[in-house]
Design a protein around this nucleic acid. Sequence first.
DNA 1: GTTGGTACTTTCTAATAGTTAGTGCATTCT
DNA 2: AGAATGCACTAACTATTAGAAAGTACCAAC
Lengths: 130, 130
Amino acid sequence: MSDPADDLIPSVFARDCASRGVLTNVTGKWGGLALAALHDGSYRFNALRRRVDGVSEKMLAQTLQALERDGLVRREVQATIPPRVEYSLTPLGARAAAKLKELIDLLEGEIGQVRAARAEYDRDHAAGVR
Amino acid sequence: MSDPADDLIPSVFARDCASRGVLTNVTGKWGGLALAALHDGSYRFNALRRRVDGVSEKMLAQTLQALERDGLVRREVQATIPPRVEYSLTPLGARAAAKLKELIDLLEGEIGQVRAARAEYDRDHAAGVR
DNA sequence: GTTGGTACTTTCTAATAGTTAGTGCATTCT
DNA sequence: AGAATGCACTAACTATTAGAAAGTACCAAC
C-alpha cells in the first residue's frame, strides 16, 4: 500500500493494507476456530472456551475483542450477576465463517492424505536427505 | 482427541487432532498468504518473498517447509549454481488455496465495512465505555 | 574490487502466546 | 462457618515464537 494508487485496491499481499490485518485476525490460530464454532450458533464465553479445546481465557478474550472490532462478531451483555455475555456472528462474520468452514471441512476430510504426506516427508528427511 | 472414539472423527476443535495442526499451518499468518500466492502459479523462493510483503526469509522458509510436509506444497530443486528451487501447489494444496482465496476475496471486498466497524468500535471504546 | 543474484541457516532480540492469580457476587456443598 | 463452583474477564509474570540481521558459497555484472 506504499503506492497511493494501490490504496484503492485492497490486497492482503500488501503489509499495510487493512485487509491484511483482518485476514490475520480471521485466520489466526484462535480466530478461525472461534468463528467456526460461532458458525454453529451463538455461545457464551466459557461455553466457547470449552468448545475450542486448548484456548486460554486470555487468548479467547483477546481474539473475540479483535473479531468484534473488525465487525465480524457481536457481543451482547446482560447486566446480571454473574455476568452474562453472549457472542454471535454478524452477517459479515457469518459469510467469513462459512468460507472458513469449507476450508476446515476439506482439511478434516483429507486428514488421511495429510498424515501420509507427513510420514513420507519425515521418512525422506530423517537422514537430512534434502 | 482424548476419547479414542474421537480418533475416528477428525475435528479441528480438538487440540491434539492432526487436523488442528494442519489448519494452524494453512491459516497461519504466512501460510495463508503463501498458499494464496501459489494459487496464482508456481514461484521461486525470492519471488514468493517479494509477493508476500513483509515476510522474512526465515519465516517464509519455515512456512514453506511446514506446508510441504503437510502435502500442500511441492518443492522442486534444480541442482544449479545459484540454486534454483520452485514451489507449487499439490492437488490438495490447490483445493485448500481455492477455499482460502474465496475467504480473502470476501475480506478484501468488504474492507470498507471492516474499516467502518473499526471506527465505530474505537469510538465506543475510546473512553473505556464497555 | 563491490554489488547483486540464488535459497536458505544461524544467532540474537523483540513481540506475543501462554500460565497463573485475581476481581466480586451468587449458589451449592461440606 | 469455609470451600468450591459458576460467571467474564484482567493483570502480572514466564515461555515460546516471530522477526532482524548476518552468514554461507558460487556466479555474473559493473
